[in-house]
């Protein structure tokens, strides 16, 4: 089965004026099948945002793609021209951003912002586009959609604004939706609702989704498969059921354990000691070994290669049993 998006060996280097160049992504392999919801889980500095940016062709000016390919329906996303991107962004690949407020134009009414996309990509007529906009707002559970379509972004609550960005993203029925930490800016109660809505909206259209988050528990809620990133590489990947019950990589296991229980427990939740290395201070060999309780001498000497296991794989010399 041909995956919808196949990223192979993606390498991106960043340049900081005071620190020089370093690899932010060090050979990322990721495949997303049609209609599949994949989670990309990683903490700040892991490279997950850079991966998302590369898929959308939004790699910043001071970063450079130094290797790899991103095959999307026969085209390499890493080498597209701006006009080719015009056809893909918003139409085939859409983004649900982290902060809705920054993503919406404060001077345009909600309805217009959705119609914009419809008119540009699907070439819909004004009235038809407006009708579709209201329909879309309705589909993301916004009440009195025709009224809300005439509102401005600042009149909506955070949760409603995020629903609007979801509506915009799904307006043209994209093949792939990129959700970049879509619930970070929201309250606990709203988070659950938005994530739920996102899943339903994506599945009902048969679109695929890449959910980028730092919260492993959130990924579990809606993803089919999850890939865990650390220091610019994917260190483990697999179907949700397996990953959460039998993690192979010590980092995954550590993340799963660093989960606050809801309830009164007498025990301290275990933490992963230390912190993630920045690309400019990567330790030799396996990037995780200084914080790993299973590390051996060999972990310092070689970067672990990818070991495929049935439905996924990991990058570890001493995986957990």
């Amino acid at each position: 089965m041909n995956p919808l998006l196949q990223i192979r060996g993606l390498e991106i280097r960043f340049r900081r004026p005071d620190c020089g160049r370093a690899a932010v992504l060090r050979g990322v392999d990721l495949a997303i099948g049609r209609g599949e919801i994949v989670g990309l889980v990683g903490e700040s500095g892991s490279g997950k945002s850079q991966t998302a940016a590369a898929i959308l062709g939004l790699t910043p000016a001071n970063a450079q793609v130094t290797g790899g390919s991103a095959d999307f329906e026969g085209r390499d996303l890493l080498h597209l021209s701006p006009s080719e991107w015009q056809q893909i962004r918003g139409r085939r690949i859409a983004l649900v951003p982290q902060e809705a407020f920054g993503a919406l134009n404060p001077c345009l009414r909600i309805g217009s912002q959705i119609s914009e996309s419809l008119q540009a990509h699907l070439k819909l007529e004004g009235r038809e586009a407006r009708r579709r906009s209201v329909e879309l707002l309705d589909s993301v559970a916004i009440e009195r959609a025709d009224e809300v379509a005439g509102w401005f972004p600042h009149q909506l609550s955070g949760g409603m604004r995020q629903r609007v960005t979801i509506a915009i993203a799904l307006a043209c029925n994209p093949d792939l939706v990129l959700a970049d930490e879509p619930t970070t800016a929201l309250d606990a109660i709203t988070r659950v609702q938005i994530l739920d809505l996102l899943e339903r909206a994506v599945r009902s259209r048969g679109s695929a989704m890449l959910l980028i988050t730092h919260d492993l528990t959130q990924a579990r809620q809606i993803c089919d498969r999850v890939a865990v990133m650390y220091a610019g590489q994917i260190v483990e990947e697999g179907p949700v059921a397996k990953l959460y019950s039998q993690p192979s990589h010590p980092y995954t296991r550590g993340l799963l354990r660093a989960n606050l229980p809801l309830g009164v427990s007498a025990e301290l939740v275990s933490e992963i000691p230390g912190r993630s290395p920045s690309p400019w201070e990567l330790p030799p060999g396996c990037a995780f070994h200084p914080r790993c309780d299973r590390a051996g001498v060999d972990c310092r000497e070689q970067v672990p290669a990818w070991a495929a296991t049935g439905s996924g794989g990991h990058r570890c010399l001493h995986p957990c049993e």
Partner: peptide, 29 residues
């Protein structure tokens, strides 16, 4: 990040215990 949150919470617990602090902890979580 989620895993660093645990670090800081554990730290606050330890500090509370070691220094006998009275604390008000406010969160949406």
């Amino acid at each position: 990040d989620a895993s660093i949150q645990v670090q800081v919470l554990n730290l606050l617990r330890r500090l509370h215990r070691d220094h006998g602090l009275s604390m008000i902890f406010i969160s949406h979580d």
